[in-house]
Design a protein around this nucleic acid. Structure first.
Lengths: 190, 190
DNA sequence: CGGATCGTTGATCAACTTCAACGGTCGTGG
DNA sequence: CCACGACCGTTGAAGTTGATCAACGATCCG
């Protein structure tokens, strides 16, 4: 159950068996069917979740009622709304499964306790966030500088499997493009 | 000299005097005139810098030769290229002062040493990155969902002083808009 | 005074969105 | 088992937003 998580951690820091056992105690396992909510706009985000199997989308709804996906999370990704999780604000995010999904969830209290009891995890998260920052940075630049076609090509190159896994209209939402545009681009790139 | 840095740290974690003294030893003070490079494309980013006074812009140049600003850094901001700093890759970023600027710089070795000797700083950076992630996330969503006018308004609301401090063409580059567009928006919003 | 840089304004243009209609596929209930 | 509706992707036509190009004015600084 914790294999994927520990493998992910191990890629960044070394854990003793003792630490592993302690860490396990802070998480709650959760399995969700397709199209279930992990977090809904207006509520408080009470947990951070590690996706050990499946896939989720995290999105906002704008004034015009359109859905905008900010991230996909699949195996090996952490999903949460930090602003809400850390500061206790009401969230504007929705997180929803797009496949049957298995999660390891940790509450705010357990997160803080785990970090203070296992300093190595402080380091782990520092590295995770650091890496996250790099990818976000790249996406932001890409979003500002590239044309629709370049953005789409770049996405396919970065995640070649994404077409098999994520419906086209979700990809459109993720890239900030109209579904029709994706459809036309796909045709053009063959 | 370290006032701004310690004030910034103190907002997130508590430091003992002993820790302060130790931390100081890892940094190098640097003062740069306007329009000087802190980092140039093609080199390796050897340091992270804390801006204690002044302002810098961090940007990339695209294939068409256009400049795209990814972040501004002023008092209380960390600037660096993580991908390069951490992984030793060649950077694609340029970081340049836009005013006379004072910096506290830390090398990779010192960064690692500081983190292992003062675990509290591990926590500090984890929090800094965490917060950074939240803002980046928001900018990314904004960049994908908002119109030019909304982006500009949002920026002014978030940083009301930005108009006084940052030339208009840099604001344009930051928002991914043409300078002419900013000019027209400014006129329209009065 | 002359050049450089930055912001402004107008006109044209291209990229992408929006709207609408249609075809295919999947799942559900009769 | 088939029929129906829901949902998704496709295609075409029209509409908008913001980029680009070009010219001009203001300010700064040598």
């Amino acid at each position: 159950m914790f294999d994927v998580l520990f493998a992910h951690i191990q890629k960044k820091v070394d854990l003793s068996n003792q630490e592993r056992e302690l860490i396990q105690t802070f998480f709650k396992y959760k399995k969700l069917r397709k199209r279930r909510y992990l977090l809904q706009e207006g509520s408080i985000c009470k947990q951070m979740s590690f996706v050990s199997k499946g896939a989720v989308k995290s999105y906002t709804i704008d004034e015009r009622g359109n859905e905008h996906i900010s991230v996909f999370g699949w195996e090996g990704w952490w999903v949460s709304d930090f602003a809400s999780f850390i500061c206790g604000e009401e969230t504007k995010l929705n997180i929803e499964t797009i496949e049957e999904t298995e999660l390891l969830c940790i509450s705010r209290e357990n997160y803080e306790e785990m970090l203070s009891k296992t300093p190595i995890m402080e380091r782990y998260f520092r590295i995770v966030y650091q890496n996250s920052l790099v990818t976000k940075e790249k996406r932001l630049i890409s979003s500002n500088t590239h044309t629709a076609e370049e953005k789409y090509r770049l996405l396919i190159e970065t995640y070649p499997f994404i077409n098999q896994r994520i419906p086209q209209n979700l990809i459109a939402s993720y890239l900030g493009l109209a579904p029709e545009t994706i459809s036309r681009l796909k045709k053009k790139l063959l």
